[in-house]
Amino acid sequence: MKRILTVVLTAVVAISVVFAGGSSESSFPDPEKPITIIVPQGAGGGTDLQTRTLAAAMEEITGQKILVENVTGGSTGTGTNQVIDSPADGYTLLMYGTYVVCGTMTGNTIGHEGLDFISGLSMEPFMIAVQKDSQFKTLDDFIKYAKANPGKVTIGNAGATATTGVVAYGLDVACGKVFNVIDCNGGAELIPYVIGKHIDAGIFSQSEVKSNINDLRPLVFLGSGHSVVPEFAKVPNLKEAGYGDLTVPAGCFRGICAPKGTPDAAKKWLANAFEKAYKSDAFQNFLKENGLLGPFTKLDKFEA
């Protein structure tokens, strides 16, 4: 009995040593080696869900193991830096978004200078929303009240340097710094705080408002034109709300990046694989359900 167990144990160790050893990288991708997509934001938020949907579709289509890892902190700079510092072999990718530009502005990361662009995925519009019984019925109500009571009105965002943070601080500065801006840890934290009336209003992505449509009331649609989601078709945009001169980010662009210097062959394989995953029913349904706008782009230069 004892001897058998010893043999099994030795075998286990031996096998793990073999697996730990390096394999020669001949062609991309090595089917034994998983591809990791790093999401620089918390688990459960809009960016995370989109990445996981995409990864699952890609795994099914290509058979390649795809891992999704959430690396938060440093205004998305921590996760971004982790990708920039990873080997440029195509096995570590970044779920890039407008938030990376924000992380770059705060000096936490060199951002797109250290990255190669693989593909663009979606554009998600933002909304400002309040709890459904809130005293604020329109954006005008909200801003006028804040100006009359400086420092009393709280407005939340998904992180100081998340794109929604830029919206919140942009709005605050434009109104003469009358708001108390609260930085939350992702939408998952912001949503219950606004619904529970701990924070007066929040900057949300449209999908977040849609998932909580019974509890939240959108005041304004920050995207251009009107929402493609039927429930929100009548939500006024900034111009209709009387604040056409306010310039804040209209939404969050998302895409996939790799560390700078990733071999072209790997980038090409990845771009094609992401294109197939993007076109899959699962991902298309995800975009449609969340009112996200395409289109898919690949191997472009950064526009930012």
Partner: peptide, 14 residues
Amino acid sequence: MINGVTPGFALFSQ
């Protein structure tokens, strides 16, 4: 959390 589940209200609402 490592497996992508953040406990809390948002888990139940979304």
